[in-house]
Design a protein around this nucleic acid. Structure first.
Lengths: 343, 343
DNA sequence: TTGAAAGCGTTACCAA
DNA sequence: TTGGTAACGCTTTCAA
């Protein structure tokens, strides 16, 4: 009936006609208002308001040869630490008028390749690759496109990297536990293929015998699902060892929460019977009792990643930054009082 | 020294010249290869490969008058349910070749307005507004731009909505608890201003006296922080009431996990001493012991939101969909055996 | 099957 | 201070 087909958007030309000026004047009113006379500016602005004129960004992009965008390649949005980081990156991008493309690769190479093509086709300024080894598919990027990796390889001459000091974090946790009298410290690794996880596990393995002179036990390192539910498996595995640990370092906060929950569920007192630590330090109000964990400086990490891509002072050279972490002593670690055995 | 300034990207014209054909032929090889002769197609493709030519999407966008994009307005990426939903929307967008703009508004009206302008300037197909009442700033959207709200108002004639059946979910939980013999069922509401939370609270209030004929108690509904740590406050509040509940409905899974953790921490047995339920049903492996909760059908929700914006069959009319939820009986609910009092 | 030319909406240059 | 014109890189129509 009265179905009016969606009218086209107005363009500078229409606005110009309505305001009785030329298109270039409309453009000038928008972009350089100080170079226009008061009455022309006022007239044009009134028309713009009245007709809700919104300049076409696609035309601007074409002209400027840039979509002013950054891409974040991320495997999994549901990892809480990365979600927080992404949020922070979004804020930086917003503040500096960049468009942030979220490329959720889901560990799928084809999808990654497709996203990459898209990024190239819109002349993205750069790619922030989160916990994802840039592989050969990144080989033919245009020279103007920067690449920076979080928690990935740190030795490339082709792209920059930012890495939390996982080694320092594990060391802080171990010092803390050793100071509390612990000698039997196990490490619950996560089996999801995250590189950050591998770095933490390596750190544990290097530190245990070498720095802290603790007995090295093969059975004190094992892989588990990266989830809260893994807590059961972790407790059952470690606490049924012939010589169970008095403390368990978990690869991340989720696993630590799981361990904490299951420990309490079966009647273990934390920290009296067992000390538990996490890694990530998402925010203060994450668990009860408060987890002893390592805080990653996500604001600094986001800033470095962002600048490595867009700040010309940084983006021109390849950097490999390591970001300090800090220990957050909570209520899940305490003196190693006694040895606890499960039946 | 040998600092070569970043060369420009190649265009159709350069490729055309290198392949000794015209620009239109290059375009045709890419978009309608069947309308080209074998040798021309082969020649052009070889050059494209060799020089890593990537067509400029910005020019395509300008020509097609569309950036083929959708926007998601979301308050907070760290809410795990919304993160999951966002991931699902990302997959749909990817599959159907849409570009998903993530507009993380952080409850900031100015930021929301800025994002909105951007969306208009790229002629976004539509906006998916997550738990966020579209306000008057959405008043002047171009008629071709769709708007759909998740868990927002459901009575607008201007935009569509999708809502989980929160009422049904709360009802299922209450039926389950009443069947187990519970009569004293409290509700821990969340004080973050989420509309989904308000709907759940309303449902509880309507159901308690009316449908289940339970004693109505003002002190059985209270607001708490939407976090795991709130568990302590929730337990301390409810379990110190003169007549404590035997079951606590929590507004979402995070709060329920917190209640579970704190209950176990102070020695309450779950579910023997206290039954606990959540809401969201993020995924199976979220807690130990497994939480009794309500699963929202995030895949269906994502599909509806997506189609309301892009599928012409749906997008042409305003829809208000309510999506069924399902009860997930876990291990945190059990018979109401005895009354527990805290000292 | 191929090529020439116009046009998408904007901005920038230069002339008035 | 203002307006005409060309250009951004692509696709598409139309003519060859």
């Amino acid at each position: 009936m009265d179905q009016q087909k969606p009218k086209d958007y107005l363009g500078v030309r229409e606005i110009a006609k309505l305001a009785h000026v030329s298109p270039s004047t409309v453009s000038r009113v928008i972009n350089y208002p100080e170079r226009t006379s008061d009455d022309v500016r006022e007239r044009v602005n009134r028309i713009i308001e009245e007709y809700h004129y919104v300049p076409n960004q696609m035309a601007k992009n074409l002209f400027s040869k840039s979509s002013n965008s950054l891409a974040v390649f991320i495997n999994n949005l549901t990892n809480p630490f990365y979600a927080l980081l992404l949020q922070e990156l979004g804020q930086l991008a917003f503040q500096e008028q960049y468009n942030l493309l979220i490329c959720n690769t889901q560990h799928n190479r084809n999808q990654e390749q497709d996203y990459l093509s898209y990024c190239q086709s819109v002349r993205t300024k750069g790619i922030i690759s989160i916990d994802n080894h840039p592989t050969n598919i990144y080989g033919n990027l245009h020279s103007s496109m920067k690449l920076v990796s979080l928690d990935g390889k740190v030795d490339s001459v082709h792209y920059s990297s930012v890495t939390s000091n996982h080694y320092q974090g594990i060391n802080m946790l171990m010092n803390h536990l050793v100071d509390l009298g612990h000698r039997k410290i196990a490490y619950a690794a996560d089996n999801s293929n995250l590189h950050a996880g591998k770095l933490r596990r390596q750190a544990y393995q290097q530190l245990v015998g070498w720095h802290h002179n603790l007995p090295y036990r093969v059975d004190y390192v094992a892989d588990f699902e990266c989830s809260i539910r893994a807590g059961k498996d972790i407790i059952e595995y470690y606490m049924h060892l012939p010589d169970p640990p008095t403390a368990i370092l978990c690869a991340n906060d989720s696993m630590a929460i799981g361990v904490l929950m299951y420990a309490q569920h079966i009647g273990l007192k934390v920290p009296e019977d067992l000390s538990i630590t996490g890694f990530d330090g998402l925010n203060e109000d994450f668990s009860y009792p408060r987890l002893t964990t390592v805080m990653q400086d996500y604001k600094k990490i986001a800033r470095l990643l962002f600048d490595d891509v867009v700040d010309p002072k940084r983006a021109d050279h390849v950097h490999h930054e390591v970001v300090d972490v800090s220990l957050l002593v909570g209520e899940t670690t305490g003196p190693a009082k006694k040895q606890v055995y499960l039946p």
